[in-house]
Amino acid sequence: MTVASTEAANGDIPVPDEVANNVFITNIAKLLDPVYNWSRRNSIWPVTFGLACCAIEMICTASSRYDLARFGMEVFRATPRQADLMIISGTVTKKMVPTIVRLYNQMPEPRYVLSMGACASGGGPFKEGYNVVDGIDKFLPVDVYVPGCPPTPQALINGLIALQEKIDQQSIATAPWYNKKDETAGLYPVPVLGPDLVDLRQLDIIRQEAAKYQAEAVAADTEAEPAAVAG
């Protein structure tokens, strides 16, 4: 058995016909990937992190009737530092989202996010509310979305199986968490609560909008007064 170097990854090295049956060309990554992914996919530990209604269904999923232990996921860790998966189970509010991002940043890589239910995916029925974030994917990378309001335990398990399939497709050779050049890569800025939720990546847009408003106000200065401040 020959083990080719990692660079010659794809197995298109020409092999003479006479030895074709005796030679198996592969690379370490290809050999390790199934083992690596098998062990990872069967021990996904979620954070104990319930937000709203969906959390109840999440607990039901973990309890005896649906039994997440069959997937090796029953170990709900109370600390993000021991967890692999964050199930965003419920409505994400503006007051809560800084905490969620902070928790995510504390999780060790590889980390996954599963957005459970309509609220977490896109705001859900509460989207129009003033204190609701319209989708956690505005702040964190989401791996799997599970629609439903709330998704039944079986729907959640379906989502978790989808996550396992995603993990199966990852490779140890290309996994970003092993060849990080920048320590802060993969971390997300924690939003700030000002007069409304401030995403620190959007400061420029906010300043532009403010400038635009100022310009308009100056232009309309001769008229009565600028548009009333809401509230």
């Binding site: 309509a118 896109g122 029925p125 629609p147 729907a155 379906n158």
Partner: peptide, 29 residues
């Protein structure tokens, strides 16, 4: 992403034209 699965559309549709599905396996990436 907005739907709350309340079933009002199916309940009030006068033509039985909209119904609530039973397929819950909709997980997507």
């Amino acid at each position: 992403d907005l739907c709350m699965n309340c079933g009002y559309c199916a309940e009030f549709c006068p033509f039985d034209a909209i119904k609530m599905d039973h397929d819950y396996e909709l997980a997507s990436y």
